[in-house]
């Protein structure tokens, strides 16, 4: 027993400098991230109905969660959030993968220019970029003008404030987060891997499908996961490009807090979203690892 205690003591001594170095950040996050989240979780199990006159019921209750699953509007928003996120991630991937392949083929000058553009759009304000889509999709905007000119629309249509405008905004916002990790993964594939696939008789498309795509899976996984998290928790984009009829779950939660001042229900909604997001990402990782047998 004493030797085990001594070994534990020695282990503690060797990890002491590391613990001291990491402690300030951990303490900060405990104080302003973990405890507030625990508080929010606790709140979501409260019974408050939003009516100041009502009497407080039992301390711990599933009332807010029951209410959530009874509310058709909330459930619809939750489902819509997942639906919009999945569509947006798929479109982002389809647009971003060719960009990553293109980056790989460009000369150093163009490549670094294109990477810088990607980086700038990542850093440019989300509100500014959404505003750009308000302009593009405006009644007198270029898309409407083109459609009328082509004769596809008789007169300008309302293109913003709906689900698809939200999706377009999200795809645009997510692209840099998808391009950079996929390009990173592609650039780490040794030249010889492409070449040996070609030597063994695979054409360009077969090489892409059988060698390049699987080898870039870590980047694809990283990009799609990050984009899914961004889309599922989107707040500003659906606020600017969607309508109340197409609101996403973050908006429902924020509305409960900012307008209804119903903190417990808002907390329950946002906590449900957090839990759902983590479950989906975890399941995704599991599928990629077990079914595709790719270590990500």
């Amino acid at each position: 027993m004493t030797t085990r205690a001594a070994a534990a003591g020695a282990a503690l001594r060797t990890s002491m400098p590391g613990i001291l170095l990491v402690a300030p950040l951990v303490v900060f996050l405990l104080a302003f991230y973990v405890i507030p989240f625990a508080g929010m979780l606790r709140e979501s199990f409260g019974a408050w109905t939003g009516d100041p006159e009502a009497v407080q019921a039992a301390d711990w209750t599933l009332y807010q969660y029951q209410k959530l699953f009874d509310s058709a509007r909330t459930l619809r928003a939750l489902w819509r959030t997942i639906e919009i996120s999945l569509i947006a991630v798929a479109l982002t991937f389809l647009l971003s993968y060719p960009v990553a392949l293109l980056l790989l083929r460009l000369g150093p000058g163009l490549r670094s220019a294109l990477l810088t553009i990607t980086f700038i759009s990542l850093a440019a304000s989300l509100i500014v970029r959404n505003y750009g889509w308000l302009v593009v999709l405006a009644d007198q905007g270029p898309v409407n003008n083109l459609m009328v000119w082509l004769g596809l629309f008789e007169r300008p249509q309302r293109l913003v404030y709906n689900k698809w405008a939200t999706i377009v905004g999200l795809v645009h916002y997510c692209m840099p987060f998808m391009i950079l990790p996929i390009y990173g993964a592609l650039s780490r594939i040794p030249r010889s891997q492409w070449e040996s696939a070609r030597i063994l008789g695979a054409g360009d498309w077969t090489t892409l499908r059988t060698v390049v795509l699987p080898l870039s899976m870590p980047g694809i996984f990283g990009g799609t996961t990050l984009c899914f998290a961004i889309c599922a928790s989107a707040f500003v984009t659906p606020l600017m490009l969607g309508s109340p009829a197409t609101s996403m779950i973050s908006q429902v939660a924020a509305e409960q807090l900012l307008i209804q001042l119903n903190f417990p229900f808002g907390s329950a909604v946002i906590f449900t979203l957090t839990a759902l997001m983590f479950t989906l990402v975890f399941a995704y990782a599991l599928i990629v690892r077990k079914v595709l047998r790719i270590n990500v």
Partner: peptide
């Protein structure tokens, strides 16, 4: 686990951080 924890704030819904913090 520690590294995952330190990197986790980017993965939780941004609105959740606001909602949790304002109450606290």
């Amino acid at each position: 686990a520690l590294t995952a924890f330190l990197l986790s704030p980017v993965a939780v819904p941004v609105v959740a951080i606001g909602i949790a913090l304002v109450q606290y």
